[in-house]
């Protein structure tokens, strides 16, 4: 049996690429600024217990760039359409980095379609005085190295990114990221006002040496979202789903199971 399927679906006049694999409760995974990529070890591991659904955001990779795509809010609204189009009722929503910001924006609008919420190294908030690297004034190589506590882990990603066939996708992803995050840089100044409305179990996962969206931002999400749990991995940068794969999968699965137990009891 294939580990996953790949298809293209059209939602709100926009064709997007969709990867899907595994069985169980649906888990909608929203990728970060580097794009959806391929079916990763993290996705494969989560698919052992869940129906893992990974759309590629409008504007990224093989997905269309629709005229209506201006900002992160457009993505948040779009994914409500996607959930409906796929006939899903409630999903475990997991978003990393830019995808975490989209997930948070969805959750402040409504948790009607959200069973649990997991934000990983999420963008979306700004805390005065917290230093963040400027991803737009770095070379691709420097940016990828800065993602990791152990920069050696960046080398395979760099090799993939710098291949000629990856260049078009990379430039497209970068342009879409700029469109949605350039100003205000990587956050929405209104988001913090409404995070208190989130009324589903929420897990926050960060690396302790995230230089893009530092763990201090995770603490801020925790302060603002009622009952949110924060897990910070030591010796880990911006991509805990890569750098601490086992711990990451364990944390997400454990959180989802605990939430199910709680709602059953």
């Amino acid at each position: 049996m294939p580990s996953h399927t790949e298809s293209s679906i059209e939602v709100a006049g926009c064709a997007i690429r969709l990867m899907r694999g595994g069985e169980g409760a649906p888990l909608l995974f929203l990728h970060g600024a580097s794009g959806a990529g391929g079916w990763s070890p993290m996705m494969a591991r989560l698919a052992e217990s869940h129906d893992v659904i990974v759309p590629e955001h409008p504007g990224f990779g093989a997905s269309d760039t629709p005229d209506w795509l201006d900002n992160i809010h457009d993505l948040a609204h779009f994914y409500v359409d996607v959930i409906r189009a796929l006939g899903l009722d409630r999903v475990h929503l997991v978003g990393v980095s830019l995808g975490g910001w989209v997930a948070a924006e969805m959750a402040v609008r409504s948790t009607r379609y959200i069973e649990t919420l997991t934000l990983v190294s999420a963008a979306g908030l700004h805390v005065k005085g917290v230093e963040q690297l400027d991803p737009f004034l770095m070379t691709d190589e420097d940016r990828l190295r800065a993602f990791f506590w152990d920069p050696a882990l960046a080398e395979p990603m760099i090799a993939r990114l710098l291949s000629p066939e990856a260049e078009d996708v990379n430039l497209k992803n970068r342009a879409a990221t700029a469109r949605m995050t350039w100003q205000p840089r990587g956050h929405d100044p209104n988001l913090h006002k409404w995070l208190h409305q989130i009324d589903v179990p929420t897990l926050l996962v960060w690396g302790d040496t995230d230089r893009m969206f530092p763990a201090r931002l995770g603490e801020e999400f925790k302060r603002l979202i009622p009952g949110a749990e924060l897990v910070v991995f030591p010796q880990c940068g911006h991509l805990p789903q890569v750098e601490k794969l086992d711990a990451f999968v364990g944390a997400v699965r454990g959180f989802i199971e605990r939430s199910a137990d709680r709602s059953a009891s």
């Binding site: 737009f136 004034l137 070379t139 260049e167 430039l171 497209k172 970068r174 342009a175 990221t177």
Partner: peptide, 18 residues
Amino acid sequence: MPVEMLLPPGYTSTESMK
């Protein structure tokens, strides 16, 4: 100036950027 400064993403088409 470095190319990241001269040509931020989205400033011009993918073709010109390349």
